[in-house]
């Protein structure tokens, strides 16, 4: 298995891993965004909270999430290691530089580090609390299936593993951790919204280079398709962060 190590420890091998993890994280962004869009529902968070429950308990999703966490860590570690090695490849820097490349492409390390910091903040606020905090708020939903009318009441003091979802007499009762409330409270603070919006802008720049760069590293550069990949990458890098950023802004104003 020597060759596996030599392959992935070569500069190209490391780039391959960076590209693969990066593109995988792009697909994660899409899934994550689709889930988060449920925050726009005016259902007091019913859809979102049941979705959150699903995402944290489904065995398949849990398995994939291990891949996700290792991708984030691997992508970050490889990126920073390559940035360090690349710095060493030019021990004496130029006095004057007029580099003929796009700004984002030259600053992926910095942009990536900012994103990593954001992920830490983001996960410790939501993910960590959701998983570990005792006294995390719960909410009970009563949905009249005939009319669709929803009534809610806050619950507390429940054990952190509790989840209830049953139908009786035409009424669906759901008791779930209220991540929706956490979001609402978080995004009532302006500085927090600003942090998110800025982070998404950083993500946009990172993606604007990273998306198409990933394909180039995989060797997918072709006269016929590269322009399409570049175009799609640009649209992707604008739309996805924009949609993410829209959520805290929306929640702040609503």
């Amino acid at each position: 298995m020597n060759w596996v190590i030599t392959t992935f420890s070569s500069s190209l091998g490391k780039k391959l891993l960076t590209a693969l993890t990066g593109l995988f994280l792009c697909t994660f962004l899409v899934v994550h965004l689709l889930g988060n869009l449920q925050l726009f529902y005016s259902d007091e968070g019913l859809a979102f909270n049941t979705y959150a429950r699903f995402m944290t308990t489904n065995p398949l999703i849990k398995t994939v999430s291990i891949l996700l966490y290792s991708s984030i860590l691997g992508h970050a570690f490889l990126g920073l290691y390559l940035a360090y090695k690349n710095k060493k490849a030019r021990p004496v820097s130029y006095a004057s530089v007029n580099n003929q490349s796009v700004w984002a492409s030259r600053n992926m390390g910095v942009l990536g580090t900012m994103i990593l910091l954001f992920i830490v903040v983001h996960m410790s606020d939501f993910w960590y609390e959701y998983h570990n905090e005792d006294g995390f708020p719960f909410k009970e939903y009563k949905v009249e299936l005939l009319t669709g009318k929803v009534s809610t009441s806050a619950k507390s003091g429940l054990d952190k593993g509790v989840y209830v979802d049953y139908v009786q007499d035409g009424v669906r009762t759901v008791i779930a951790k209220d991540l929706f409330l956490e979001c609402k409270e978080a995004f009532e603070q302006l500085w927090y919204v600003v942090l998110y919006v800025i982070s998404m802008a950083v993500l946009a720049f990172h993606l604007s280079h990273g998306f198409q760069s990933g394909f180039q590293t995989l060797g997918l550069n072709h006269k016929k398709y590269t322009s399409a990949i570049k175009w799609f990458g640009l649209v992707f890098s604008i739309l996805i962060p924009l949609a993410f950023a829209a959520i805290p802004v929306y929640m702040y104003f609503s």
Partner: peptide
């Protein structure tokens, strides 16, 4: 040498304007 981060500065400065497609082919 450092590793490639696909910035494209090489090709932009190459006096023979060698294209990045070759890097992809090499990968």
């Amino acid at each position: 040498f450092g590793s490639c981060t696909n910035t494209g500065a090489c090709s932009a400065e190459c006096p023979k304007e060698i294209s990045l497609e070759h890097i992809a082919r090499m990968n």
